[in-house]
Design a protein around this nucleic acid. Structure first.
Length: 578
RNA sequence: GGUCCCGUGGUGAAGUCUGGAGUUCACGCCGGCCUGUCAAGCCGGAGGUCGCGGGUUCAAAUCCCGUCGGGACCGCCA
């Protein structure tokens, strides 16, 4: 049907008779016997000169046949890749007509995203979506190349699996053959990839679809894709090296440049310096500990276990209104308050709480924060966890650059704590999943936990996250491959033997028969691609995404199902709750 | 569970704070003119339940209450 793609025609083709197919991007009519039709396919646009084009409208699908010729010099279009040539004396076959589109595809005006998604088949024709989806495909193939080159085996794991109550909320699928029982859709192939290691696969990977029924965000959809991998007889650095390689090749495939070696930072240091376990290291504004300065303060609000501050250079021209808004935000983030101190020319300060601080305290504070004339300091006093958390959010609020500025700052965050908290029942809450190997140096801390559970919070794990520009790309860990340690962890988590046998019995059983030491990782493809192409929302790199409320504007999913389907599945609906 | 922002012809915005005739701008659409445009140009035209419901008022896009939809974030996401 066609001899060439629109965007690939060039001066080399002058004189050839060609047929191109595509959509009418634009028609410019100059009278009955001269019109220019810009024809678009996936490769780009070419101008066709048509004798009579009155019946041709935008987005009609055409096959255009004509002779490639040089444009008159004064009409060359430098903006267009094919701008030096045109298809002359073109004859047009209309393959398909088109109604006026519900929004313009030119990209000249921003279009409401719901409208774009409702008509995604049109939106996909735009340069932006064509580029994003092609970039995503390039990332996928680069990752596959990298993994294949390192002798990983691609293995598919089941989509219909057993539900486990840990972690995120499961999507569940009722079983017709076993009424009253349900499958869960995988939140990740975690257990299966560990079974692959027991099975001697040695190196497994998969570009896996995962589902989690949690609230949606700019960087979270119900469904997402991960590069999921697992290796035997390796340690954390080995895994990080392989992942760095794959991510590096994916980055190079899009940007043309291989990223530098990825720095590593401990979780503790990340929290202290950035107030986040996924720090955006494109900019400074680091947190400074000033607890010592106020160790003997009379200021009641600062009689706290931890006081952290950040300094904004030349930030003192901020107005009272904005400061009040920042304070309100800090409170919604969990702070009791937010203290700000503006620094004047000769070191004098302006602050609602200056009168509660001694001159020594103010002097030491400014010195620690290295604050000078025109700067403003923000301080949070609280327990360590809350202080760094709130100040970390404030740091982003004050300094986070736009998505496509500041370059790509990859970062490994290592030495995560094994437990993030102790729950009301006195059981530790795992920070990662319960198969994460504790740090070898901290194993003895586990033994002493009977006497003092709080030491558990100091136990490090062999878990690590990969972070890019403040987004958690993914996480992984060295796994527990010994039943005794695994049972010890289950005991600590308050999961008794019955329960662990019921939930993870197949894994525990597998470990009876010779489990190799193994470790793995998974990172989100959607997030990686979004950041690589400079999109601040992963919906822009997903062909058919869902809205924040989990509905699909295109298909209207989710929808009720009819009584017959419910009957078959042995389900009955409760009356709607009002 | 919570906080904040948005909703005005097909699209995007202004108008809302400070109530006074559906007013304006750009794009698109329809018709006409037009033989070198490429954001073509010129002339003309059509197109509206100001998300929805209620209230206040002589009068509501505008003020108040509720509700729906979209988005950003906190919680949540082992």
């Amino acid at each position: 049907m066609r001899t060439d793609y629109c965007g690939r025609l060039s001066s080399d083709d002058i004189g050839r008779t060609v047929t191109v197919c595509g959509w009418v991007s634009k028609r410019r009519e100059h009278g009955e016997h001269l019109a220019f039709v810009d024809l678009r396919d996936r490769t780009g646009i070419v101008q066709c000169v048509v004798d009579h084009a009155h019946d041709i409208r935008s987005e009609y699908v055409l096959a255009v046949t004509g002779t490639v010729r040089e444009r008159p010099p004064e009409t060359v279009n430098d903006e267009l890749a094919t701008g030096a040539i045109e298809i002359g004396e073109a004859t047009v076959e209309i393959l398909s007509q088109a109604d006026p589109t519900p929004f313009q595809l030119s990209g000249r005006v921003e279009v409401d995203e719901t409208i774009r998604i409702r008509h995604r088949y049109l939106d996909l024709r735009t340069d932006r979506m064509q580029r994003n989806l092609r970039s995503r495909a390039l990332v996928n193939s680069a990752i596959r190349r990298a993994m294949d080159a390192q002798e990983f085996v691609e293995i598919e794991t089941p989509m219909l699996i057993a539900s486990t109550p840990e972690g995120a909320r499961d999507f569940v699928v009722p079983s017709r053959l076993n009424p009253g029982s349900f499958y869960a859709l995988p939140q990740s192939p975690q257990l299966f990839k560990q079974l692959c290691m027991v099975g001697g696969i040695d190196r497994y990977y998969q570009i896996a679809r995962c589902m989690r029924d949690e609230d949606l965000r700019a960087d979270r959809q119900f469904e997402f894709s991960q590069l999921d991998m697992e290796m035997s007889f390796v340690d954390g650095p080995d895994v990080r090296s392989v992942v760095s390689q794959a991510v590096g090749e994916a980055t190079e495939a899009i940007t043309g440049q291989k990223p530098k070696d990825i720095p590593e930072i401990s979780w503790r240091e990340a929290m202290n310096r950035y107030g986040s376990d996924k720090p955006d290291t494109r900019f400074g504004l680091e947190l400074v500990d000033v607890t010592d300065v106020f160790s003997e303060t009379d200021f009641n609000a600062f009689k706290a276990p931890c006081i952290k501050g950040i300094k904004v250079e030349s930030g003192s021209d901020i107005g009272r209104n904005q400061l009040d808004q920042l304070t309100d935000k800090a409170k919604t983030w969990g702070a009791k308050g937010l203290v700000w101190i503006k620094v004047g020319a000769s070191g004098e300060v302006t602050s609602p709480v200056a009168k509660f601080m001694s001159e020594t305290e103010i002097g030491d504070l400014l010195e620690k924060l290295n604050a000078v004339d025109g700067d403003i300091c923000y301080l949070i006093a609280d327990d360590w966890k809350r202080a760094v958390h709130v100040l970390g959010l404030l740091r982003l609020e004050l300094g986070k650059p736009p998505v496509n500025e500041g370059g790509l700052h990859f970062l490994w965050v290592i030495d995560f704590p094994l437990f993030e908290d102790i729950d009301d029942a006195g059981n530790p809450v795992p920070a990662h999943h319960p198969f994460t190997m504790p740090h070898p140096d901290d194993l003895e801390l586990l033994e002493t936990a009977d006497k003092d559970p709080s030491v558990l919070l100091d136990v490090r794990s062999q878990a690590y996250d990969l972070v890019l520009n403040g987004w958690e790309l993914g996480s992984g860990s060295v796994r527990i491959h010994r039943r005794d340690i695994q049972q010890q962890i289950f005991d600590l988590l308050g999961i008794n033997e019955d329960e662990s046998q019921k939930k993870f019995g197949f894994l525990m059983d597998a470990f009876r028969y010779g489990a190799p030491p193994h470790a793995g990782f998974a990172f989100g493809i959607d997030r990686l691609v979004a950041l690589l192409v400079g999109e601040e929302n992963i919906r822009e790199v997903i062909a058919f995404p869902k809205s924040q409320s989990g509905t699909d504007p295109l298909t209207e999913a989710p929808t009720p199902i009819d009584a017959k389907q419910l009957d078959e599945l042995g389900l009955r609906l409760l009356p709607p709750v009002n």
